[in-house]
């Protein structure tokens, strides 16, 4: 019957769209998982100066923001379940559910090696950066413009992929270096002046 055919076509189109949308855009939870994975791999691709680790000290990753459960917990669980290490060092995960820069945050900043600024953080990136100063901390954000703002690495969701943008100057400034293996897949940006 003609009617039935129509319905079918619409259903297919809709599903296609849906799929497409699905296929085309990466859903959020998946993106978070990817980000977590990326984070781990980024840690792998980064080289801290020797002085930043004292005696087998683990690499500490600080998750800043309130939506820790989104990425952070996944990250942590993965670390824990798979006993992942980076260059032989264990990883220590911390979270601070703050959205603003305060003394607690500042204190924590002094002890982490990697700072992951989650999207729920609303504070000024620049302030954070200043608070970090020249300390070799890998600062990763969740938007593509993050590096433009002075952050080092920004992770963003694009259509079919997770985009990585890197501010090399910022990286260099803090005595960090990032492997080309990561860089070749990243967009190199410069700080907006």
């Amino acid at each position: 019957m003609v009617k039935k055919n129509y319905i079918l076509i619409i259903a297919i189109v809709l599903s296609l769209i849906g799929l497409n949308a699905y296929a085309g855009d990466i859903d959020k939870s998946k993106a978070n998982k990817i980000k977590a994975g990326l984070l781990y791999n980024m840690a792998k691709m980064t080289t801290w100066p020797e002085s930043s680790f004292i005696n087998g000290e683990p690499i500490s990753i600080l998750f800043l923001g309130k939506d820790y459960n989104e990425i952070g917990s996944y990250f942590e669980s993965q670390i824990r379940s798979r006993s992942l290490t980076v260059k032989g060092r264990k990883l220590a995960v911390k979270e601070i559910a703050r959205t603003e820069l305060d003394d607690v945050v500042r204190e924590e900043l002094k002890q982490c090696h990697i700072l992951f600024i989650m999207s729920s953080y609303k504070g000024s990136i620049m302030e954070l950066l200043l608070a970090i100063g020249d300390r070799p901390v890998l600062v990763v954000g969740e938007s593509s413009s993050f590096p433009k703002e002075g952050g080092m690495i920004g992770l963003s969701i694009e259509k079919k992929r997770i985009g990585i943008s890197v501010n090399l100057d910022a990286v260099k400034k803090n005595d960090l270096s990032i492997s080309a293996q990561l860089l070749q897949h990243a967009k190199i940006v410069k700080k907006d002046q």
């Binding site: 791999n41 079919k160 897949h185």
Partner: peptide, 12 residues
């Protein structure tokens, strides 16, 4: 292409 996989760069 290993890194592309890791860093989700299918284009690469």
């Amino acid at each position: 292409s290993a890194s592309a996989l890791v860093f989700h760069d299918p284009a690469f």
